[in-house]
Design a protein around this nucleic acid. Structure first.
Lengths: 289, 289
DNA sequence: CAACTAGTGAAATAAAAATTCCAGATGCTA
DNA sequence: TAGCATCTGGAATTTTTATTTCACTAGTTG
């Protein structure tokens, strides 16, 4: 079947349908056309604003290929297809000024009324950004370095985080394994949490993650780990948290909170940073050795 | 004094300064040129996207007048001035090149040799912030609303996300349960992933989360779910991802990436927003009833 | 392995767009 | 009101941009 034959009778009339068409037919496109497809999906703005020659260059393709692509999807030519992208830009361009956006923001912050999903998302994104800014300024350099040392010095890392903290814990376990650190997630599958935690020895490290309301099991594990003389890093929301007292190192993380719902962004960012820093550290030592 | 003489030696280099120039010199412009000035100030988008002929017609002026206008403000020609408007659009439009920026950001910071943990953390925080900004501008209102509807309409929500995506999946399951939505996490404990997924019926919703390299199991589950006629929401990194094609709704999320390590911030923020929006929606319906 | 087919790059051509030019209109000054 | 300077519309020209064509490559089928 030739590409020409593939051409659909009528071209998509909105960007959304075009996107759908492209995705649906992606597999059957020729390699060059796939290149274009990818670029089109990821850089709609360029399609609207640039000339064919420029787009072609960025796709690493000939201009004629772009024309072929357009025809494949039922357009007269590339210009015809570009119209669509221009329209899209015009209709959704943030032409209304910043002032308007600010007003929307304050309105949403104030009234507790019904919020559109988009408003909710913006609110979340904004407060997560705040939380990250706070993280940057509140975590101490020395603490980070010490944490990396502790990870490097441990023969294995055990991680516990239940309920709300579970995503952070699972991320940590996953990431540590990826940088070749032995990491075990105490996940309590089959109610074996206590049993899982008895495996810790004095050469191991426990990373415990817990936020209000602190899960009793996590607190318990921190306690018993203490007795086994293993080292403990706590990621929690207060120095007064029940897991803080028994820990060797405490990261106090203030995560974003929007109407009761706390976020995990800052905690995850910290987790990520620890893992990567550890990886760098290993790399450095490896080279030195 | 002729218009030619009025021309300033050097053209404005940003839209903002050009705007200033236009306003300042408005009075001394000839009537036709004032017409153009007015239009330019009020329809910057057209300046970026339309041809001279179109703009001229909308100003009720000859194309040559637009050229004169551009020259009056020190540009080579109208095309030269249009560049400025296009640039403006690219930088402040919800540009998918944010994805590119996020990647570049990390590359830049990565160039310097061994980084201290704190530097790593700052780098992560900053690129997560970028990713969140991108999220805000790239996710479409209508998609969010549709997602909420789909969640509300489902008799149960199944969630699959393995490996790197697992934290997001587990968070979603946790959060949905907290707002009293029946949610099941397909976690593959005891190798029962396929068995777990056979439980889906046509009244259910599957939320699948997968990023490159796409976990084969997730792709498989999406496929079999499709056959069972359940609805599917995909959270993934490209419209061309193997789970996108079979999905009813696709969220394309560009998360931060620092040296191979991708973050989950944006995905989590989206997950959060969906859950809370759903909760609000329920609340609203409840009140109406 | 010859004959065909689809896909591709590059050059040729066509189309469209931008720019320049000029003749006439307008309004001002002497 | 004659003379001058500026402005303006529209046609002519130039430049840029899009499209078509064609020859070559690679892969497939009989």
């Amino acid at each position: 079947m030739t590409l020409r034959e593939l051409a659909v009778a009528s071209s998509a009339k909105t960007l959304e349908t075009l996107r759908g068409d492209i995705v649906r037919r992606y597999e059957e496109l020729s390699p060059r056309l796939q290149q274009v497809a990818k670029y089109v999906l990821e850089n709609p703005n360029d399609m609207a604003l640039q000339t064919l020659a420029v787009i072609a260059e960025r796709c690493e393709v000939q201009p004629s290929t772009i024309v072929r692509f357009a025809k494949t999807f039922g357009y007269e030519g590339a210009s015809d297809m570009q119209e669509l992208f221009k329209d899209e830009m015009l209709t959704q361009a943030p032409s209304p000024s910043y002032a308007e956006r600010i007003r929307q923001f304050s309105r949403r912050a104030g009234a507790a009324g019904a919020l559109a999903p988009q408003d909710v998302m913006h609110e979340f994104a904004d407060s997560n950004i705040l939380a990250l800014e706070h993280l940057k300024s509140s975590v101490r350099k020395a603490d980070l370095e010490r944490a990396v040392e502790m990870i490097a010095g441990a023969s294995a890392v055990y991680i516990v985080g239940l309920r709300r903290s579970f995503p952070v814990a699972s991320y940590l376990a996953y990431a540590l394994r990826h940088v070749d650190k032995r990491a075990y997630l105490l996940d309590g599958v089959a109610g074996m949490l206590a049993e899982q935690s008895t495996m810790l020895t004095s050469k191991d490290l426990l990373i415990a993650i817990s936020f209000q309301p602190y899960a009793a099991e996590t607190v318990e594990i921190v306690g018993s780990t203490r007795e086994q003389k293993a080292r403990i890093i706590a990621i929690t929301d207060s120095r007064l948290s029940p897991i803080a007292a028994a820990s060797d190192l405490v990261f106090e993380i203030k995560d974003a909170e929007v109407r009761q719902f706390r976020s995990l962004t800052a905690s995850l960012c910290l987790a990520q940073s620890l893992v990567i820093s550890y990886a760098f550290d290993m790399e450095k030592r490896g080279r030195v050795r």
